[in-house]
């Protein structure tokens, strides 16, 4: 393995890492938003909405991201919906991650005793205030380990977005292997790039879990 070759390709990976991080960050943000709404719908047993959420969660979790991306990128244009590769990647990740986040948050919310809501209501709080100030802080604290696992999982899932022509880390690695046969260097840089992105996330997640356990569950 040649250090010169590594150095030569490194800038390409740095640029690709920006794409990976941008897609992952926006997709995870979207997934958390979708997941929170879905978890609330399930937690409050909203009629019809609840069944719709169940169907969505099963669909999102039981189909591969590649298939979801193909659908968004190649099938939707047939009915006149044309999105860029990056939009498809972010929407696809939101769709997939939303299902996982919904499950994590729902089980967290369900772990909070329903009588805690009685306690909140008895003090004059509205249902919304009870959710925001009493149920969510405790439920999210329970859900944090599952949520952080989902975050790491979703960052890794971005490695398939090259199928919709996005120059992410995986795309660049395959490109270099195909054009210059620097296979070992390309794969080494690929591994290093993912570690550079994910190790801080994993360490941050662990710190967050400890903090939330103390803050959310009263030490």
């Amino acid at each position: 393995m040649s250090p010169d070759v590594l150095l030569e390709h490194a800038p390409l990976f740095a640029r690709a890492a920006v794409v990976t991080v941008r897609i992952a960050a926006l997709g995870i943000l979207g997934a958390l938003t979708v997941g929170l709404v879905c978890a609330a719908v399930e937690h409050f047993r909203v009629p019809v909405g609840r069944q719709a959420v169940r169907a969505y969660v099963e669909l999102a979790r039981n189909t591969p991201l590649v298939v979801q991306l193909f659908f968004l990128y190649f099938a939707l244009p047939k009915v006149g919906v044309v999105w860029s590769g990056e939009a498809c990647a972010i929407i696809g990740l939101t769709f997939l991650g939303g299902g996982y986040m919904a499950e994590a948050l729902r089980s967290g919310l369900d772990a909070v005793d329903a009588s805690q809501v009685d306690g909140a209501l008895s003090l004059g709080m509205s249902r919304g205030a009870a959710l925001r100030h009493v149920v969510l802080p405790q439920g999210v604290a329970v859900a944090v380990p599952a949520l952080t696992a989902n975050v790491i999982f979703l960052v890794k899932e971005t490695s398939v977005v090259s199928v919709v022509a996005l120059p992410d880390l995986m795309y660049v690695a395959k490109d270099i292997i195909g054009s210059s046969y620097d296979t070992r260097e390309a794969l080494t840089l690929l591994v290093v790039a993912y570690l550079v992105i994910l190790l801080p996330v994993a360490l941050g997640a662990r710190a967050l879990e400890g903090r939330w356990r103390r803050a959310g569950l009263g030490s």
Binding site: S115, Q116, D118, G119, A120, S122, L123, H133, V134, P137, Q138, A141, A215, G216, L217, G218
Partner: peptide, 12 residues
């Protein structure tokens, strides 16, 4: 106001 058998204090 109401006080419950199982307290219902907010643990967080």
């Amino acid at each position: 106001g109401m006080v419950f058998q199982s307290y219902e204090l907010f643990n967080h």
